[in-house]
């Protein structure tokens, strides 16, 4: 075991040999000129946070591995909140699977990047019979006939299955479910409200979620503003783009997932 660890370390050193040398060189330079700051670590943490908050999630996922300080910042839920505030929104299109003129169209989602080009690398999360029943903070809640409800993060391709309440199994319908985020308790809630059953998703404290999943969840939740989402005012414009880029798109019904102003309220009905 120890050997394996050492080997990993060695591998790492070999891979990063050049950059390590450069770091050494820069350290020497620092030692030679004690008054000269060349090191970003001299920036106070709050400024580093304000720099990192400007980066897209894809970059932040890479930035974990830079150093402990950065890793700590990125894992911090408060940082996630701050990132949500300032990240740009991105449109997501969801096409519900359906049977049209005896042709079966599977469900499909398209995420647009900053340059308004469709990016499809996240799509494998969506299965042919999924139905988008809610979205919140960049997470989407997918319904299908199976025994679970799926909470998916389109930007990472991560998803989490939640068992449906047993009582629902016979008279199940997507409209029974909703999904939201409570801004005060910081809990996600998936709510099968018609049956009066609630499933609380406390992404921070649920003990059976392993730490990496918890991290991904915070990242998902930071992703919010990244994947989300046009509001209805922009919909027409987006549809035009869609028709130009994907020829068959106009055949299918499209849903625009929108965080909305009241995302927090979704799914927290008192039933």
């Amino acid at each position: 075991m120890l050997f394996a660890l050492l080997q990993t370390k060695f591998e790492h050193k070999r891979r990063s040999g050049r950059s390590q040398e450069q770091t050494m060189a820069s350290k020497k330079a620092l030692a030679m000129q004690p008054g000269k700051k060349i090191c970003m670590t001299l920036l106070p943490q709050d400024i580093v946070e304000l720099i990192l908050v400007r980066l897209p999630v894809s970059t932040l996922l890479r930035c974990h591995g830079v150093c402990k300080q950065w890793d700590g910042i990125i894992r911090d839920p408060q940082f996630a909140m701050a990132h949500i505030q300032c990240a740009p929104r991105r449109p997501l299109f969801f096409f519900q699977g359906e049977n049209l003129v005896h042709l079966l169209y599977p469900s499909e989602a398209i995420l647009f990047d900053e340059a308004w080009s469709p990016s499809k690398w996240v799509v494998p999360v969506i299965e042919p019979d999924d139905f988008l029943c809610a979205s919140c903070n960049g997470l989407i809640c997918l319904y299908s006939d199976k025994s679970t409800i799926k909470i998916a993060n389109l930007a990472t391709g991560e998803c989490m299955h939640l068992v449906k309440p047993v009582r629902n199994s016979k008279t199940d319908h997507f409209s029974y479910y909703s999904f939201g985020f409570h801004p005060v308790t910081k809990q996600y809630k998936e709510n099968a409200d018609k049956m009066g059953m609630e499933i609380n998703l406390d992404l921070q404290q649920t003990p059976d979620l392993d730490s990496s999943l918890r991290l991904i969840n915070w990242l998902e939740y930071r992703r919010v503003l990244e994947i989300l989402c046009v509001n209805l005012d922009n919909m027409h414009e987006v549809l035009t783009v869609m028709n130009n880029t994907t020829g068959a798109a106009h055949n299918k019904e499209s849903h625009v997932a929108d965080q909305g102003t009241s995302s927090s309220a979704v799914g927290i009905s008192g039933s």
């Binding site: 990063s16 950059s19 090191c39 670590t41 150093c67």
Partner: peptide, 16 residues
């Protein structure tokens, strides 16, 4: 991450 550390003079302090 390696390039970032080099560019910003950040010391690598993560354990294996």
């Amino acid at each position: 991450p390696e390039e970032i550390r080099t560019a910003f003079g950040i010391e690598y302090d993560l354990t294996a």
